[in-house]
C-alpha cells in the first residue's frame, strides 16, 4: 500500500504545504495514522480516500496551529470559466507545473491537486475534502481558471515565472531570483 500511494500523497502534500520537508512529514504522519487506526476502516475500497482525507485533515490541523494559512471564503458563484490552450503545458516540466499549481489560491488548490495528481473523481474529491459536490465543481472551475492565467502569465514573462520554484524552499530563507 505504501508503494501504491506514497508518491501521490507526497505530491498532494507538496501542493498544499509548498515545502518538501513538511510534505514528507505529512505523508509519513498519514501512513502512521493508517498503521494505528486504519484497521477501523471496514471497506478496503476506501483506502485511497481515507489516506487523502487524513492527509488533508492533518494539513488543516497543522495550518490551524500555525495560523499561517488563514483564509476567508471567497465568493464561489459565477466562476470565470477558463480558456483552454493545451499548448500551455508543452514547455512545462514537473517542477514548473507544481510551482504554477502552488500559486493557485489555497481554497481551490486542494481540489485541483486531487483532480490532477491521482485522477480522483469529483465524488472522491468531495469526500476527501468534506465539501459538497457542487462546491467541488465550482472550485475546480475557478481553480482551473487561475491555473490557466498563471500559466499564461508565465508564458508571457518566463523570467519572472522561473523565480517560483518553491519545491523545497522557504521563501524567507532562500532566494531563487
Amino acid at each position: 500500500m505504501v508503494e501504491q500511494f506514497y508518491q501521490p500523497l507526497f505530491r498532494f502534500a507538496l501542493s498544499l504545504t509548498k515545502h518538501e520537508t513538511e510534505a514528507c512529514d505529512l505523508t509519513q504522519q498519514t501512513f502512521y495514522l493508517w498503521a494505528t487506526k486504519g484497521h477501523q476502516l471496514r471497506d478496503a475500497t476506501k483506502v485511497k480516500s481515507w489516506l487523502f482525507t487524513t492527509l488533508h485533515r492533518e494539513f488543516l490541523s497543522l495550518a490551524r496551529r500555525r495560523r499561517r494559512f488563514e483564509h476567508t471564503e471567497m465568493d464561489e458563484s459565477s466562476p470565470e470559466l477558463p480558456v483552454s490552450d493545451p499548448t500551455m503545458v508543452n514547455d512545462l516540466d514537473g517542477k514548473s507545473a507544481l510551482a504554477a499549481l502552488q500559486q493557485v489560491e489555497e481554497l481551490y488548490r486542494a481540489p485541483l491537486a486531487l483532480f490532477y495528481l491521482k485522477d480522483h473523481s469529483y465524488k472522491e474529491i468531495a469526500a476527501i475534502l468534506e465539501i459538497p459536490i457542487g462546491t467541488v465543481m465550482s472550485r475546480l472551475a475557478r481553480g482551473k481558471g487561475q491555473l490557466r492565467k498563471i500559466l499564461a502569465d508565465r508564458k508571457k514573462s518566463p523570467t519572472a515565472a522561473n523565480k517560483i520554484i518553491p519545491l523545497d524552499s522557504d521563501p524567507q530563507r532562500k532566494n531563487f531570483s
Binding site: Y6, Q7, R11, C24, L92, G94, A97, L98, Y116, L117
Partner: peptide
C-alpha cells in the same frame, strides 16, 4: 498534459 507533468515531480 498537466497531470502528466505533475506526475514527474520528484519524490525524495
Amino acid at each position: 498534459g498537466f497531470a502528466a507533468k505533475l506526475a514527474e515531480v520528484p519524490v525524495p
